[in-house]
Amino acid sequence: MSIMVDECAASTEGVEPGVALFRSLGDPARLAIVRRLASGEARVADLTADLGLAQSTISSHVACLKDCGLVAGRMEGRRVYYSLARPELLEMLAAAEVLLAATGNAVVLCPNYGTDAPVTTVEVAR
């Protein structure tokens, strides 16, 4: 996804990859997994213990992140150790933290997307 400042802001052409990326990180469990993996590789059992989520939940979300190319697995014997597949993801998370700090976490109070906002799904035309 390339963001061009000089193009018409109303255009939705070419935004699908960005929408998919943010959707992949938009689930609380997946974002928690990514944040945990930012500190180092982990097995599903480690993620389950660290995040307090069910093993099946962790496994399905790790599979999703792996399918998106955001997480990679490394076999060691019968164990699989997961890590972030792209260093750019760490940079994006760091930039998001800076943005959240700069806005005073105002997005949490947003009536459309904040923590108390109703859950809705918006589809992008293909």
Rank of each mutant, 00 (worst) to 15 (best):
L93D: 07
G104T: 13
D67E: 14
Y113F: 14
K66M: 10
V119N: 01
L90V: 14
G114Q: 12
V98D: 14
R30S: 04
T57K: 04
N105H: 15
G77W: 04
A85W: 00
P118R: 10
A54M: 13
T48E: 13
T57G: 05
R30I: 01
S60M: 10
E41Q: 02
I3S: 14
G18W: 11
I33C: 09
V107K: 00
A20G: 00
V119M: 10
N112L: 15
V98A: 10
L53D: 07
L25N: 03
A10L: 15
T120L: 09
D6I: 05
I33Y: 05
S59N: 03
A42N: 01
T103P: 01
E91A: 12
S2P: 02
G69M: 05
V34M: 08
R43C: 08
D116T: 05
L100D: 15
G18Q: 06
E88F: 00
A38I: 02
V98S: 13
I58H: 02
T48G: 00
E16W: 01
E97R: 14
S11R: 09
P17A: 12
Y81K: 03
G73D: 00
E88W: 00
P111R: 14
L53A: 13
A96V: 07
H61D: 06
L51R: 06
V5M: 14
G104Q: 14
T12K: 04
V122R: 12
G69T: 08
V44D: 01
A20T: 11
R30N: 02
L99Q: 15
V5N: 07
I3R: 13
V62R: 01
E88S: 05
M4N: 15
P111M: 04
A72M: 09
M4Q: 13
T12S: 12
C8M: 07
I33L: 09
L89K: 02
L100C: 12
H61V: 03
